[in-house]
Amino acid sequence: MVTDLVQTSYASESAPAGDNEDRFRAGENWALVLDGAGRYPGRTGGCVHPVTWIVEHLADHLAYKLTVHDRETLPYILAAAIRATMADHGPTCDLSDPLSPGAAVAILRTRGDLVEWLVLADCAVVVEDAAGKHTVVIDDRVDHLPDAPVVDAEVRTYDPDYVATVRNRPGGFWVASTVPEAAGEALMGQAPLTEIRQALLCSDGVTRLVERHGWTWQAMFAVANDEGPQALIDEVRRADGDHPRVRHWRGKIHDDATAALCRFTGPEG
C-alpha cells in the first residue's frame, strides 16, 4: 500500500538581523520542523556550539532515521536522533547542564493507512480532515508551569535558575536537548489516512498569527494553499510590526518562522 505525502511545500525565514534557528526536512512519507531552543542570557548551557549547529545536526539525524528506520515509532526515532546529536558534541560540552541548547520538534508521517504526528515543545502540527475540521497539537506546557516565578509580567519570562529545575523534568516541560527520555513525553496522535486532507507544521514564529493576531486555522490553510507558506511568514512580519503591544507575550518581538504545508494522497494498492 502506497501512502506517500503527495506534496510538501515550505518556507523558513530568520527573524530580522538574526540567524535562522529553525529547520525543515522532508522525505517521501514524512516532514519535520525544528525550532531551536536558544540560550538564556549569561548562560552557556554547558555547550560551545551555536544553536544553529544543534538544530542542523538534530534535523539531519531525524531525517536519516525517519528514512531508514521507518518501522519504528516516532518517539523511538526522536530519542535515537537526540542520542546521535549528543554523540556529535564530543568532550567539549557538558551535556549534564539542564539549560543545554535544544529544539522544539514537529513530525508528521504516513505509515500504512495512518497519518501519525509528534510534537515536543512549542512547535505545532495542525491536521485538517476531509470535513474541514482541525486537530491542533501544540505543546504549551512551558506556559502552564505550577507556581512559576514570573520575572517580567509584561512578557512572562522565567528566571534561568528556575527553568533549570523544570526543564526536561517530570511536572515541568520537555525539549529535544540532552535527555533522550524527553521523546517519550511528546504529544502524539494518529488518524486514518482516508480522513485527512492536509496538515500544517509550524514553528511558533508562525503560530503567533493565531495565538497573538486573531487568525483562524481555516484562514492559515487558505493562505498557505492559495499563496504558499511564505505568505504566512509575510503576514507574521506585517502583523508583528503593526501590533501596538507586541511585547505583551512571552518571547521575542520577532522570531524565526517556518511553515510546511503537507497534502496527502489516498491509499493505493
Rank of each mutant, 00 (worst) to 15 (best):
L261M: 05
C262A: 15
P229L: 07
G102V: 04
G46D: 09
V163M: 11
I82G: 04
L201N: 06
A15I: 01
A124K: 03
K133S: 15
R208W: 02
G46P: 08
G90N: 08
R167E: 03
T73S: 15
Q198A: 10
V136S: 07
I233W: 02
A84C: 00
R197W: 02
D4R: 14
D60L: 05
D226S: 14
L187V: 06
S12C: 10
E56G: 13
V136A: 06
D256L: 01
D159Y: 01
P75H: 04
E268I: 13
D88N: 02
H61N: 14
E128M: 07
R245V: 10
V105S: 03
V137F: 00
V2K: 11
L209I: 05
A219P: 02
L114H: 15
L32K: 03
A222G: 10
R237V: 10
C47G: 03
D19T: 10
V175T: 12
G45K: 04
Y40M: 10
I253T: 14
C93D: 15
V126E: 04
A259V: 02
E185I: 01
T85G: 05
E211K: 08
A176V: 04
C47D: 08
D159V: 02
T8M: 13
Q190S: 15
D129C: 00
W174L: 04
R208L: 07
W30A: 06
T178H: 04
S96N: 15
R237D: 14
G36V: 03
V105Q: 05
